[in-house]
């Protein structure tokens, strides 16, 4: 690969100033499991500087309280999520994603924030972040801004980050009582694959646990970006927990999918899987909500 410089920023300001200096020629490094592989494979010839944000306190912080919700620094590796019992209990879909990204070796390094910034249509973390209502905290030359996570990806590998901006953290609201969530993906093997399709569901049950009062459904690998599917959520909210309800929601996910055929899957297969996975994720999320 081409020669690069490595810089480790200690603060947000320092990171922004490096980005201002190098512009498009700099890339932010958090876990590196995508970026370093891309550099080594010659897919990022334009990169001259790698900016490591793991030493920025705000990027490596992980903090949860039932009142404040979750603060997830952009460079926090996956294992810290699923190894924290309180976080895994509050955000099971996020823990599902964190435990499915690569093998153990990848989870030691890969960050949810990095998975988001990579903006892959098949990313394993993004549907969970969308379903759980995450907000992006972004820093740049013009200061800080926030963005709902479903607006972050704008195309395969392309995000809403402006020139010289970077993702500092994600914030997830506290789940209401009787909430549950689930992320599922389909891969041909049982490990180490890119999703053919995936789905995340977050929902809340009424106190009697027989009706859904709130829901968000997101699907991935079936469109240029991961999709929030309000039609699927609408099919669930207020409806009784019947087969027909679940099928209507799953069918809405299928209808929202607009996939392509490539080596990993076909259009028909992906549409079908969007339905199957959404249905299964709803069932699991309901079960988790009942047990919460």
């Amino acid at each position: 690969m081409q020669a690069i410089a490595y810089q480790s920023a200690k603060s947000i300001d320092e990171a922004v100033s490096v980005l201002r200096q190098w512009g498009e020629r700099a890339r932010v490094l958090s876990g590196g499991t995508d970026l370093i592989a891309q550099l080594r494979e010659g897919r990022r010839h334009d990169v001259e500087v790698v900016l490591d944000i793991k030493s920025i306190p705000e990027a490596r912080e992980l903090r949860y309280s039932p009142g404040q919700g979750l603060y997830l620094g952009a460079a926090v590796p996956c294992y810290r999520i699923y190894e924290d019992a309180a976080i895994a209990r509050a955000y099971p879909a996020l823990a599902d994603s964190a435990a499915l990204i690569g093998g153990i070796q990848i989870q030691s390094r890969a960050a949810i924030g990095g998975n988001l910034c990579n903006a892959s249509p098949a990313a394993d973390a993004i549907p969970s972040l969308i379903a759980l209502g995450a907000t992006c905290e972004i820093a740049g030359p013009n200061g800080r801004r926030t963005l709902p996570v479903e607006q972050f990806c704008i195309g395969p590998g392309r995000s809403a980050l402006e020139q010289n901006e970077f993702l500092v953290a994600l914030r997830l609201p506290s789940p209401a009582a009787q909430s549950g969530s689930c992320f599922l993906r389909f891969i041909p093997r049982n490990e180490m694959d890119i999703a053919v399709a995936n789905a995340a569901v977050a929902l809340t049950l009424n106190p009697a646990k027989d009706r859904i009062t709130a829901a968000r459904v997101a699907i991935g690998a079936v469109a240029p970006t991961p999709l929030l599917v309000p039609e699927a959520a609408a099919a669930l909210i207020g409806a009784p927990l019947t087969e027909a309800t679940l099928e209507r929601a799953a069918e809405a996910a299928r209808a929202a999918a607009r996939p392509i055929t490539d080596m990993r899957g076909s259009i028909a297969q992906r549409r079908h899987l969007a339905r199957v996975l959404t249905r299964r994720a709803i069932e699991s999320a309901i079960q988790r909500a009942k047990e919460s």
Binding site: R189, E191, M192, I194
Partner: peptide, 16 residues
């Protein structure tokens, strides 16, 4: 060739 990597040339893992 579209799948010239161990990610996409899917050999069995321990879980398969």
């Amino acid at each position: 060739l579209a799948n010239a990597s161990f990610l996409d040339y899917r050999m069995p893992t321990t879980l398969d």
